[in-house]
C-alpha cells in the first residue's frame, strides 16, 4: 500500500481499489484493513494526512513521506528469502518498481543473486550427499529454478508490463 502512495496522495477508498486491481485478484483488501494499515503507517511517520476542508475521516487524503519513500526503496532493494511459491511477493515488487520509477531489472538481479546463493548451497549438499539428499535437493533446486525462469521471463516482458501498469 505504501508503494502505491508513491504515485501521489490518495483516499483510503482509492488506495483499496488500486491495490485490489493490481494485487487483490484472490484476496481483496477489507476496508478495516486499509484504515488500520494507514493508521499504523501514520503512527510510524511513513505517511501523512492531507485533510480536505469540511471532510469526514473517510475524505482524508494520505500522502507518502520521505521516510515512507525510503522504506519502499529499502524493501525493493532487499531480496526475499528464496523459497518456493514466492511469486506473489516478487510480482508485487516488480509491479511496484515499475510504478514508482525504480529499475525493475535491479529487483530481478538482486533476487537472482539470492536464489543462486541458495542453489549453490543445495548443489554442494547434493553432490556430497546420499540419494535422499539428492532427491530433496533436486526438488528444491527445480522449484528455485522455476522462480528464476519466471523472473527472466518477467524481465523479457518488462516493456510490455510497464505499458500496461502505467495505463
Amino acid at each position: 500500500m505504501l508503494g502505491l502512495l508513491e504515485g501521489g496522495p490518495r483516499h483510503g477508498y482509492d488506495l483499496k481499489r488500486s491495490y485490489d486491481e493490481r494485487f487483490g485478484q484472490d484476496r481483496p483488501l477489507a476496508y478495516g484493513q486499509v484504515y488500520s494499515t494507514l493508521a499504523r503507517l501514520l503512527k510510524n511517520g511513513l505517511v501523512e494526512v492531507e485533510s480536505e476542508p469540511g471532510a469526514g475521516p473517510e475524505r482524508k487524503k494520505y500522502a507518502i513521506t520521505d521516510a515512507g519513500v525510503s522504506d519502499v526503496t529499502g524493501w525493493l532493494d532487499r531480496p526475499e528469502k528464496p523459497e518456493p511459491y514466492l511469486q506473489s511477493t516478487l510480482y508485487t515488487k516488480v509491479v511496484l518498481a515499475l510504478l514508482t520509477g525504480h529499475d525493475a531489472n535491479d529487483v530481478l538481479d538482486t533476487q537472482r543473486s539470492a536464489h543462486l546463493r541458495l542453489m549453490r548451497d543445495l548443489t554442494r549438499r547434493k553432490n556430497d550427499g546420499d540419494l535422499a539428499d539428492q532427491l530433496i535437493c533436486d526438488h528444491a533446486l527445480f522449484h528455485l529454478e522455476a522462480d528464476l525462469r519466471w523472473l527472466e521471463l518477467t524481465a523479457a516482458r518488462l516493456q510490455q508490463l510497464a505499458a500496461q501498469v502505467r495505463a
Partner: peptide, 11 residues
C-alpha cells in the same frame, strides 16, 4: 540455466 549456474562461484 540456473541449475547449471549453481555450479559457479559467482555470476
Amino acid at each position: 540455466e540456473p541449475r547449471v549456474a549453481a555450479y559457479s562461484d559467482h555470476e
